[in-house]
Design a protein around this nucleic acid. Structure first.
Lengths: 347, 347
DNA sequence: GTTGGCATCCAAACCGCTTTGAATGATCGG
DNA sequence: CCGATCATTCAAAGCGGTTTGGATGCCAAC
């Protein structure tokens, strides 16, 4: 059933039916009701493609997911982010269009999306430091919102981000307050903006106490369980091993925990762990008391906010860039405790 | 730049340009080259909406992601599946359209997708036992492929699935061969088809040795780290605790491992663990030697196969349903060993 | 020298909707 | 009672492609 048929059925012109259904004022209340009734009865739904062509609005948002060609790993955060954003789109009547792109030809993908005109805007995932995509998108003139930021990029873009620097600065201070001095950082790949900022926060907190970060205690890599484990296993063989670890991901923290257990060390007593917790649906940090002390920030909520911001920009026609800096909360769990007194330091 | 402008620029009719670009034979090789050259030069890309309207093909595949309203949890497997499917779509020039739907009004979502006509086919995620969506989709006449199967549904549909029954049957036999008799099953929610089948495989293997499953050792629930932990913690307080555990997810296995460690038990010596491993990018089962003995099957590969199957069906006009049963491999890792001899059983 | 076939190209219709511009009849103020 | 105003409706022209049904010109065949 299409518009013309429905109009025919009603003895009206397509014009009137269209207007009645889209809430235009120049239609009598009586016919509007009649039309609505008929539409329901025939289960009429306007053809999306036709509507899009006619209005010039795709009513869809694109998410371009970079897929590292080397690592072949999808960001575990992605599913929750999508769930949050999807909620918002669904309510607003937008579709969500995903494109998985090997990071080798991301530029082509963006250009194509632009000229194909099948989305009204884009969410940029996983921004890197000095991310080349932002100037490109600016040039393309496609509305976009970045999930995260890009150090060194021209700041004239809209974004939603967690205050990663502050979060890791606080987490580090927290460990310092507990007496820890040998603190390790198990970070994500530091070409990623979020990881660079976390490291920065880590170093800043140390510097504030006149301490320098020990390069031997700072590692960056793919944030997996295996990474956490291998890194911690190696660090524990150092002559002066860390008494605390700060990890950028829940999975890394789990790996660190495994390495501790293997060595017969108790988490929170022998070695403390603080992790970042994205509050992923399938990776909850304990049910009541948190398993890990963590800097907590919901990725799902970030997804909602990104989506809402983008829709706002699209519907109001851009304007000055919007930004939204979410503060992470520091929740204390069972994985941290005072720094163990080393035998030789007993005063 | 649109078709008409490009045609103008070339001094040709839109008809000819369209044909040249789409490889129709009634165009001289000379003009075809000229058109291709100009298209490249002006970076022309046909407008998606217009093309869709004209051809009646959406060139897009829908993924309807059910979101349990109670659990608010996105299946962790989802990101990898999407990555696999996305690869295939990208190569074939299809878009991937995601819809996140609270499972309360899934039916409405399917009907809407159908009548809006913005996808050519659908991938069904997370089928349940007796899943009501399958007859609905059949009725709607929209091509679809199910990732998984549905026990009790009319079998006239296309699917890609892992042989869950067989995988868990083998895993259970493996544990039985090692001498284990008290084997626990930490399963997913058993209204989900895959979980029902895994349980079935588990029970079948026990039955084959004349053993009955102990209800106290079978738990079903959300497959999270916390679930694994809590369930195992409780089981360890039983008068006759399990010596081996079979878990339906890597995350549950990690939780089980935590519970063991908390009790000072060694994995693979005091208690064995076998888990199912979906080979998720961010949840690798160890780098060289597997951490856990596991039934392994790549979800990403399943994504690729589902996508390819659906495209095949769309482009060849349905036909008899296709099915693809993937066998999981049983990989032996460090988490299993012979059943410990109980003190009183020393002969 | 026609005629038929073939290779090329084009005008126009169409896909299903929105939207502009105009028509119609009813209502109202003077 | 008449012109102006208003409410309501419609025909037709897009949106940007594809596709149908000719045109045109050229060449081989008769």
């Amino acid at each position: 059933m299409n518009l013309k048929q429905l109009a025919e059925e009603l003895g009206l012109s397509p014009t009137t039916v269209s207007r009645a259904l889209n809430g235009y004022p120049e239609v009598s209340e009586a016919t509007r009701l009649r039309v609505a009734e008929a539409a329901r009865h025939y289960n009429y739904r306007p053809n999306t493609q036709a509507k899009r062509l006619a209005t010039g609005r795709a009513m869809a948002i694109g998410h371009i997911i970079p897929l590292s060609t080397r690592h072949e790993i999808v960001n575990p955060v992605f599913a929750d982010f999508i769930a949050g954003a999807g909620e918002v789109y669904a309510r607003a009547g937008y579709d969500m269009v995903l494109t998985i792109v090997p990071d080798s030809d991301e530029e082509r993908a963006y250009r194509e999306v632009r000229s194909k005109g099948n989305v009204d805007g884009i969410i940029v995932h996983g921004p890197k430091v000095h991310d080349a995509r932002l100037p490109l998108l600016e040039e393309l003139g496609l509305p976009f919102v970045v999930h995260g930021r890009s150090l060194g990029a021209d700041p004239g873009y809209s974004w939603v981000d967690v205050n990663n620097t502050r979060a890791f600065e606080r987490a580090t201070s927290f460990l310092l307050d507990l007496g820890h001095r040998r603190i390790a950082l198990v970070n994500g790949i530091e070409t990623m903006d979020f990881a660079a900022r976390r490291r920065h926060g880590f170093e800043r907190a140390l510097a504030a106490r006149g301490l320098a970060a020990d390069p031997a205690l700072m590692v960056a890599g793919e944030m997996t369980e295996a990474q956490g484990h291998d890194v911690m296993r190696d660090m524990l063989t150092l002559p002066d091993p860390p008494t605390a670890v700060l990890t950028a991901s829940f999975l890394s923290a789990i790996g660190v925990r495994r390495a501790l257990w293997e060595r017969g060390l108790r988490m929170g007593r022998d070695v403390s762990i603080v992790t970042h917790d994205d509050e992923l649906g399938y990776l909850r940090n304990g049910t009541d008391e948190p398993i890990f002390t963590a800097t907590r920030s919901s990725v799902r909520e970030a997804g909602r906010r990104c989506a809402a911001m983008l829709l706002r920009r699209i519907e109001s026609g851009a304007g000055a860039p919007e930004t939204d800096l979410m503060e992470a909360t520091l929740v204390v769990g069972a994985s941290t405790g005072p720094a163990p007194r080393r035998p030789e330091t007993i005063d």
